[in-house]
Design a protein around this nucleic acid. Sequence first.
DNA 1: CCGGATCCGAATCGATACTG
DNA 2: CAGTATCGATTCGGATCCGG
Lengths: 233, 233
Amino acid sequence: MVARSYGQYCGVTTAVELIGERWALLIVRDLLVGPRRYTDLKQGLPKIPTNILSTRLKELQEGGVVRRVPLLNCGLVYELTPYGRRLEPIVLALGRWGFAQMGDPGPDDVITADSLTMALRTAFRPDAAADLPPADYEMHVGDVVLRVQVSDELAVTQLAPPAPPVGGRLPSEQPDVVFAAGPGIRLLISGDVTPADAIDREIVAVVSGDGMLLERFAATFHIDPAGAAVLPA
Amino acid sequence: MVARSYGQYCGVTTAVELIGERWALLIVRDLLVGPRRYTDLKQGLPKIPTNILSTRLKELQEGGVVRRVPLLNCGLVYELTPYGRRLEPIVLALGRWGFAQMGDPGPDDVITADSLTMALRTAFRPDAAADLPPADYEMHVGDVVLRVQVSDELAVTQLAPPAPPVGGRLPSEQPDVVFAAGPGIRLLISGDVTPADAIDREIVAVVSGDGMLLERFAATFHIDPAGAAVLPA
DNA sequence: CCGGATCCGAATCGATACTG
DNA sequence: CAGTATCGATTCGGATCCGG
């Protein structure tokens, strides 16, 4: 199972032979969030054929990008090797680059927990976060619920969508604000709409907590699409 | 001719739909060196089928990455749009990442002028160059001849391989050193061999000029295979 | 020579079904 | 849960051909 060669002796070519096959970089994207089981990956990439996932994981292992780690009595997970983890800045930069060209979602497009987590990492501005007080958000997008905790660092945790634990949460565990968003949240990230506008236009809806914190959110997570090519009609 | 969708609403996914198809990023790599005609691209990517090159160029145009520019009475060239040019740090980072995994060249692997030029940009260390006196190299690798001029900036020019102009060059046009190298030059870039070793082991051969300048070359062009993939902000 | 378009066999991908 | 097996649909690769 040798990768089809491009016939060139070059670092870029080598890289593309390692992670350039269809679906490979999206597998890497999800593994950058954390180790994942086969089934998790399949769920996070709903349209990937199972045989392709299987093949890619083998190729990525051969390439030294991914490692297969058995768990005690608990199945196994795939995780990035240190070499694979060095792709993080590249994947984030690609996410930033692609963001500028994102239009509206297609009718069948989904937003997954891992892709949204990486999108937040893509948009995170540590310098802005350092100048602002810490904040603790709970973000709902489609079926995905993320707890986004910002201090100097960014910590994103995936929460189970269903009912909160009976008895409610302790105050110290409560996020400062809970909000729900649609795909239009892209416009908040790009700065095309202000948080106030976003609420007016129902791009985001504050479920509970202090809605003013959306200002802080927009300052902390931002991608400037400047320089994006306008597609010819 | 719509790109096969991955079914996700995500920046990384969008990016991969734009430049993730086979050969696409190598076309971008060559266009990062400069505008190229269809025939130049075909020569620089010897193994690309002509129909694939044609298809990719159309897709890259649709994606706003590449632009088709007619020249006055001289055919036409393809060039990156400003948006496409924003891929440069990503392609360089990928080259650095792939470099760490490069083994020996396959029997049919070639080194092209554009890929070598990008490899030099990949390995270029501006901070090291700033601390050293300017240098002017002429580098032969296979059939490729590059003039590599380092001051604060890096300038690489492709030279015609055949006979030098009759009467020789003027002294002011002469490079400080002319050297020939094989694929083993990778070991010089990675620091696995010293310049002196490289000469001893016939990885490089000094054709004319001051061979000691290879020390400066090795200090200016370096990729640490263990180093983090550094993406400039 | 430049800038492709066309045709066709080979390899890959995608969807579904099936298994230890 | 973690994949294999199968098979039609698509794409890729190699070669040829064509108008300027």
